[in-house]
Every structure is written in structure tokens, then in C-alpha cells.
Amino acid sequence: MSGDVWVYSESEGVSAEVASAAQDVARGASAEVRVVDIGSPRQGIRGSGVRLLLKGPSGPDVSPAVAAEALARAAKDLSPVAVLLGATRDGREAASRLAAKLGVGCMAEVVKLASDGQGVTGERNVYAGKVVAKTRCQFPAVVTVKTGAYPRAEALPERTQEVEVGQVSDRSKVVGREKKAAGGVDLRSAKVIVSAGRGVKKREDLSMLEDLAVTMHGALGCSRPLSADLGWLPEEHHIGLTGVTVKPDLYLAIGISGQLQHVAGMKDSKIVASINTDKDAPIFQASDYCIVGDLYQVVPALRRALSARR
């Protein structure tokens, strides 16, 4: 059973994406994909193959510390060639811990995975998305796969193999959990995003942009200063390197200067249109359609034109 490519994410949806990436690695390495559950089995999607259940850890939640320890124990026994995790916040932590425990390299947030039979290759954005780095790691390797980059695999395992890894404890204890209030908005799945930047002068003025977003059946996002520095919107609206990564059909950047850190979060959008008073604003370099103008005039004009067309 050695030489498999393992897939793990605390989120089943992300796990299905990572399974797609794992198929690309498994093909090049002539290996099999094994989707891992820790503690208790999850539903998964039916198909042919083997699901690996690591038994021992108990409790409803598997923390990154517990996941890493369980995976490390099982990996020492079964020697997978690669362990792939989703690059969520918890996934990055679990992967990094696992790599440190096993003493192997850890590739971060990669896309376009492949294998030459000796190791894994993958691409990732560096320098706030200005540059793409092609990275490689010898087997055995730990990899985190960028979320949203792969479609969910449809043929996931239906047979389960159990592996006893024993009790695993975490030095830290989760004592509370609260949903973040994002106003029911999921920017990752929005087809249209209207995004607000520092060009918006007052918090109240955001309602004008929100109104435009609603008219366009879209969601409201923002650049980092509006959520982190000014606190005008919850941080779940923050699009950028340290916030949400989005790829809507239409990204409408309003009063956003276009720092690299922001562009890193929206550069995979299908069409980008921007409104900014500064004709040299970097956002225009990342845009298909550019309006040099005052958002306080252009946004109401857009709103009027949209109403007139419906």
C-alpha cells in the first residue's frame, strides 16, 4: 500500500478539490489516491477506490494539531509518496506541522500539480502575485493545494480501509466558536463583485455601492484598509492576499488604488472594470475597462443606467 498519494482536508468540499489535484500527481507517479478521514468516517462521493480511516482521535472536531499527528503516525507506517492538504488556514497549519514532524519539504498553495515519478511539481504565486514560481519537492512530500483552483473530484473512494493510530491529544483546547458575520455574503461564489476602496470617503457612502451591488445581483467586497484599518466592513469582505481570493465573472473595483496585495485576491476574475480618479492608479494595469473619474458621479450614473435598462 506504500506509494500512495493521500488527500486530507477538514472540509469535505475542499477535500474533493484536493482529490482532483491528487489525481494529477498520482498519474505521474503511477500511484493511487487515498482520501483520508480522521476519527470518524465522512460521507464522501461514491466511486471506485479506497478511503483511509485513521482511527484513534475522538471528538467532533479534528484540530490541525491532531490531524498532523494522526497523519504523521499513519504516514510512518504506510509511507505515502505525498500527502496533499487544502490550503485553508487550518490546512496550512496541519501541513506545516506534518512536514516538520516527518522532516520533509512542504509545498505551499500550489496549482498545476504534476509528478515526474520522483517528486511533485506545482506552481504558486509569489511577491503578491507579481511572479509565478514553479516549485518542486522530492518524494515524500507534503503539499497544500490552493482552494478553488481545482474542480471537486467526482469519483471518490467507496471502500474504507481502517488504520489504528491511537489517541492523539492537542496541547490547546477549543473553548468556543462563532460564525463570522458576513451578512450572508459568500464572495467566493459571487458572479459579480462590487468592491470598495479608500476612494470611498465616508462609511455611509458604502450604501451607494451596496445598492449598486444589489442591482447587479452581486456582492460587496472591499480592499484591506476598509476592513482592517477603518473597520467599515467585516473582514470577511476583504479581498486580497490575506483576505478572500475571488474569481467572479465581473469584478468592479471602485476607488481601489490596486496595491499588489489586493490584486493578488482578484486577478483571476473573468472581467475587471475599475473606476478611479487617478489615471495612474495601478488598478488600471489589472483592468479590462477603466474609467478615470469620480466614483461619486460615476456610481450614481451606473445605477441610473442600469435601472433604465431593466
Binding site: S96, A99, A100, C106, A108
Partner: peptide
């Protein structure tokens, strides 16, 4: 610059 976020958890380990 490279934003892997790997060093902190590795350091903890």
C-alpha cells in the same frame, strides 16, 4: 513576499 505561512506552525512543532 512569499506568504507560505509555514514557518510559524513548523516552529511550534
Amino acid at each position: 513576499d512569499t506568504y507560505t505561512g509555514q514557518v510559524p506552525p513548523m516552529l511550534g512543532e
